[in-house]
Each structure stands twice: as structure tokens, then as C-alpha cells.
Design a protein around this nucleic acid. Structure first.
Length: 224
DNA sequence: ATATCGATTATCT
DNA sequence: GATAATCGATATG
């Protein structure tokens, strides 16, 4: 698996398919510290570092959308790994996932929070926000939370659902800039679910201020 | 055909 | 802390 860290300008290349062809729990942890990026028509990059993820499993996970079997909404979860699964949450927010596992077996990882890295002004525009400063307190409003980060990167179902995030020319992809080699990872139960709520499938970077969840009310255990 | 329930967020009190 | 906004999927008649 070629996940060799890359650095320097134009170093953002999509992670390979086999990165995602693993158990969602493994992928969710491996994605922490990576970069979720949107490439604009101009070539500019809107991006953030992944600081919080959740795994949704194909087996014995009643909280996963795939638990009811394949439907038009969730079919990407059953398809090949490395594709975007975008769904509408509570009728108003889009949430961004990447499919995992081998074809036929369902699985996905939900992106729950990013630390903004580039394209802040573009994020403000898409979020319909005008933040006063570049303080953490203001930046949090851009990408802390699954609905927020999707809006900040202009992710939506019609434009992005099913998109191959590993394609070299994809305008939505995940990359490794080598900027966070071994993040300190905390494990906790997932947020906002009732079924299978006890499973420890949420992962976030320890002490990172962009992690979502009511002033980090939801506690977890340091697991690395 | 109608009712219920979310992998959420913004905006109140 | 509580609630409204809003819609697709699912369950039931």
C-alpha cells in the first residue's frame, strides 16, 4: 500500500483504493490526520485536516444505513471502496462518507470534523458565514460537525454522491500531506444515534479544538 | 396515504 | 437545555 507521505507544492494526490479496502474501524482511524480536499475549477484547493471520524459497519451495526439492506440512498455503501456516500440528514444537512470494504460488503466512514487548512474564504462563502477573525473560536463554525464540513466543501448529493475519491482527476479526494504522521487518537461511542449506540466507533484526535460534540462533552478513551 | 424517525445545526431561553 | 426547520426512508393502513 503506497501511503508514503508527500510534501511540497502539488503534493496532494488521492489515497489509493486499497487504503479503503479494509474494515471501516481501521479506515476511520487511518483517516485521522489526512486531508479532505475540494479542487476548484481554478485549481485552487479548499481543504481541511480530518480530526474526527465515525465507522459504520456492514455487519451487526444497526446504526448504519446499510443495516436495512441496499436501497437507492445507501447503495454506495455496498459498492467499491473509496467512493463518496453523501446523504441528506434531518432533511437539511449533507453528510460526507467514504465507502470501505470490498464490493458486496457494506461499510463507510463518516467525516465529522475538519481543521481548516486552505480556502477559508471559499468555506465562508459556502457556509454563508462571515467570520470575524481567524481565531479558533470562529474557524470552528466552518468545519466542526458533519453538516458544517460538508457545506464548507460544497459537498452535496447530486454533485458528489458515488464519486470516486481515488481518481487522479477527482475534484473531491483525500490525501496524505505527511503533516500528522501518528496522531494521538481517542475512541468513544458515536454521536446522535440510538441503535448500536454502545459500540466504540467514533475516533478523534486528542485535544484538537475542532472536534465536534458540545464542548467535547462526549468523553472517550485514549487508545493510541 | 399518512405517520414517524433520524449519522444535525442554528437560535432561542 | 429546548426546539424548530425539513425531507427521504420506512412502517402501517
Amino acid at each position: 500500500m503506497k501511503t508514503k507521505p508527500l510534501r511540497g507544492e502539488n503534493a496532494l494526490v488521492p489515497l489509493p483504493r486499497d487504503f479503503y479496502e479494509r474494515h471501516p474501524r481501521i479506515v476511520a482511524r487511518a483517516l485521522l490526520g489526512k486531508i479532505l480536499a475540494r479542487r476548484l475549477p481554478s485549481g485552487d484547493i479548499v481543504s481541511g485536516r480530518v480530526v474526527e471520524t465515525e465507522a459504520y459497519l456492514g455487519d451487526r451495526d444497526l446504526a448504519a444505513h446499510s443495516a436495512v439492506g441496499k436501497t437507492p440512498r445507501n447503495e454506495v455503501m455496498f459498492g467499491p471502496a473509496g467512493h463518496a456516500y453523501v446523504y441528506l440528514s434531518y432533511g437539511m444537512h449533507y453528510c460526507m462518507n467514504v465507502s470501505c470494504e470490498l464490493p458486496g460488503k457494506a461499510g463507510a466512514v463518516l467525516f465529522r470534523a475538519l481543521e481548516p487548512l486552505s480556502g477559508i474564504e471559499e468555506m465562508e462563502k459556502w457556509r454563508k458565514l462571515s467570520i470575524a477573525t481567524d481565531s479558533i473560536k470562529d474557524l470552528i463554525l466552518l468545519t466542526s460537525g458533519p453538516g458544517r464540513l460538508a457545506q464548507a466543501l460544497h459537498i452535496n448529493r447530486t454533485g458528489d454522491n458515488g464519486k470516486d475519491l481515488t481518481a487522479p482527476d477527482s475534484n473531491l479526494f483525500i490525501a496524505d500531506d505527511g503533516g500528522m504522521p501518528r496522531p494521538r487518537i481517542v475512541t468513544s461511542p458515536r454521536i446522535g444515534i440510538t441503535k448500536s449506540a454502545n459500540l466504540p466507533l467514533r475516533f478523534y484526535i486528542s485535544a484538537n479544538p475542532f472536534v465536534s460534540g458540545k464542548s467535547n462533552r462526549t468523553r472517550g478513551n485514549l487508545s493510541s
